[in-house]
Design a protein around this nucleic acid. Structure first.
Length: 290
DNA sequence: CGTTCAACCTGGGCGC
DNA sequence: TGCGCCCAGGTTGAAC
């Protein structure tokens, strides 16, 4: 379930790896689907080896490591620039300074070693739905450009936010999950921000007034900013961890998500669970109005 | 335009 | 104690 706050926490958690060289790439044998890695593990490992990690960017719920140069290319110029795009999907994790196991994709780091510098960057995915792709500039555009991802939910301004969703006939909760409209929102934070904005998740976008769009925009950025500050949500299955293998702390702030049958923290009305677009939606029928 | 469904996976929780 | 089942949801692509 990594959404914007969890992925942003991963990005920040691996900041110390920036400027370091990838000395070796190890990929676990056997359990990898073809889809997990592009190109296939052996080729990807050969191409990443020797590159320097120049930056770690977040694109919605994905992380892109900008890599420059390699032993084979000998051209540490912009032309040789590549991105290793990591998409955690449901259970993927990016870790540093953790005892690695054979389950991890491991990037062994070297070069500018120093205090606090990680020795390894690890990607692990319990369910194996996540992906790791090495792409050039054109590939990055295709994967994370405006044709796939709208403006980031934390950066978008109120007017742009409203204008990108306002005309939709869809229920507002469903529209918030559309990464092409706004990038970074998933099922959990969609429910939470709608609660904070006092909006019923079933309302059609085109029926929301301008003031309510402004209110939703504010709620969205407040919820996401606080969740980033608290390093995301670790649910009862304890899957999500920070890059330092610690749980997030935003789960204690959940008002509606996962709380069906429990009283609303604001008014005491029983929280409801419904299904929209094949996913659970949690809301308070009293606090959230049509 | 929009919705609906299937597919990719594993592990936790539940009923029996 | 264990088996079978449902569910968790990010993304894609096809069908309607």
């Amino acid at each position: 379930m990594p959404e914007l706050p969890e992925v942003e926490t991963m990005r920040r958690g691996i900041a110390d790896a920036i400027g370091m060289r990838v000395e070796r790439v190890e990929v676990p044998q056997g359990r990898l689907r073809p889809l997990l890695m592009q190109p296939p593990p052996r080729q990807l490992a050969a191409e990443v080896r020797g590159c320097v990690i120049e930056a770690a960017e977040r694109y919605g719920k994905r992380i892109g490591l900008r890599l420059v140069g390699s032993a084979s290319s000998r051209q540490p110029t912009a032309a040789g620039c590549r991105w290793l795009v990591i998409e955690p999907r449901m259970t993927g994790l990016l870790l540093v300074s953790t005892a690695p196991s054979q389950e991890h994709v491991r990037l062994r780091l070297g070069g500018r070693c120093g205090r606090g510098r990680p020795q390894e960057l690890l990607f692990w995915d319990r369910r194996g739905l996540g992906t790791v792709r090495l792409v050039d500039a054109a590939g990055l555009q295709q994967l994370c450009g405006p044709s796939r991802l709208g403006p980031d939910a934390l950066a978008i301004d109120s007017d742009t936010f409203a204008s990108r969703l306002r005309a939709s006939a869809r229920a507002v909760k469903v529209a918030l999950l559309d990464q092409r409209a706004v990038a970074g929102i998933g099922n959990l934070y969609a429910a939470e921000m709608l609660f904070h904005a006092g909006i019923d998740p079933r309302v059609r976008c085109r029926q929301l007034s301008r003031p309510r769009w402004a209110r939703l925009h504010t709620a969205m950025q407040e919820v996401l900013a606080e969740a980033v500050e608290l390093e995301g949500s670790t649910l009862s299955d304890a899957t999500y961890r920070t890059a330092l293998n610690e749980p997030g702390r935003y789960q204690s702030r959940h008002r509606v998500y996962g709380r069906a049958g429990q009283p609303c923290p604001a008014c005491g009305t029983v929280i409801r669970r419904i299904v929209q677009a094949q996913r659970s939606t949690f809301f308070c029928p009293q606090c959230q109005r049509r």
